[in-house]
Design a protein around this nucleic acid. Structure first.
Lengths: 204, 204
DNA sequence: AATTATACTGAATATATATACAGTATAATA
DNA sequence: TATTATACTGTATATATATTCAGTATAATT
């Protein structure tokens, strides 16, 4: 996305405003009227420049065939799958585990994420994570001590605090007195980190 | 909004899909192509029917001048204020207490709500409500025993479980051993119920 | 010094598009 | 029974619209 000139920016604004106001994009003539141009070619050349720079897309031979390339600045809602926390067995993101999809704006929790995990059990109760809560999971290996991770040990999926104080020993710590720490020797046991929690949603 | 026929519904869907896909509404010909009509007048009459019933608006003499009257059915994101839990003094929803606004689709938590409350303290810790969490508050007086309410006693705002087992005695119960019940005699003390919690959001 | 991008006017035109008119047919309503 | 709504085909056309071509002028690059 290259830099935009002052006039091109006005034209881009004009398009956005027209769509918001009327529901459909402007014609060349509409733009001229709005911005005071006397020739439709003034609008045309600006549109071509905006297209070349990647701000808009022009459908050739189509009336009002202008679409704004980057609606990121706008709403951008997306569907995220809700995955049931399967006790054992199948891999986490398998299709059969998708409970339903949940509409949530992108970047709702500041950072991006990949899916929601439906919480089972109360092992993270003291971290305010309750049964049936939805954890927003970001698939990443960039984990720091104290992060809440979604981990897989021997096909069992669990949500815990992550702590690693020596190279081969990882502690998966619950937030509930009734549960005890899981200590994992990476030389003996395989640990797969699915991702980490970046947010939480609870529906009452 | 009158009832819609099956064919008209298809045409309406077609318009919505076209806008979503291309960024601009379809022409009569586009609709024909999509739905298999052989005459542009087929689309035209359906459009007129949809306009008459209030589902769409048609800008006369304008190419692709179709706009959908009720975009409610679509995404419908809205801005909700985040209110800081003020310890004492000013009324809760006063403008000076608005921390910022938060974009969230309407009906995100199943039911509607009015604002987000930023949680201070850990009095509801065992209910999984932690410091800095955002509680989705629905302003209502329709409270049942066990609901999490936002209550005001003498200008102090608090979040607690609501219990009323006799007509004049209300218990506001925390979810934390370190806090004790608040018993309110409605004949002596004024209790104002701001609303109840319908959901929760946590940003990690 | 030559080229390219920006920023316009003005005119011309092929075609994309809305829209009216003429029919046919069926189901619902008054 | 007459009327209206629905659901189409098919043709025609005025005009809305994209788009090209011919210019003029200034600022920014190469």
């Amino acid at each position: 996305m290259k830099n935009i000139t002052s006039q091109q920016s006005k034209v881009l604004d004009c398009i956005q405003i027209h769509i918001k106001k009327t529901g459909f994009p402007p014609t060349r003539a509409d733009i001229c009227k709005e911005l005071g141009f006397k020739s439709p070619n003034s609008a045309e050349t600006h549109l071509r420049a905006l297209e070349k720079k990647g701000f808009i897309n022009i459908e050739s031979g189509t009336s009002r065939g202008i679409s704004i390339t980057n609606p990121e600045a706008e709403v951008q809602e997306d569907e995220y799958p809700i995955i049931g926390l399967v006790a054992a067995g199948s891999p986490t993101l398998a299709t059969e585990n998708v409970e339903k999809v949940f509409n949530c704006p992108k970047g709702f929790f500041g950072s991006n994420f990949d899916y929601f995990l439906r919480v089972r059990g109360l092992s993270m109760k003291d971290a305010g994570i309750m049964e049936d809560d939805l954890i927003a999971v970001k698939k990443t290996q960039d984990i720091r001590n104290g992060d809440i991770v979604i981990a897989r040990i021997d096909d069992e999926v669990t949500v815990k605090y992550f702590h690693r104080h020596s190279p081969n020993i990882v502690h998966l710590q619950p937030a509930n007195e009734e549960f005890s720490d899981i200590e994992i020797d990476l030389k003996e046991t395989e640990l797969f980190i699915e991702g980490k929690s970046v947010g939480l949603i609870r529906e009452n």
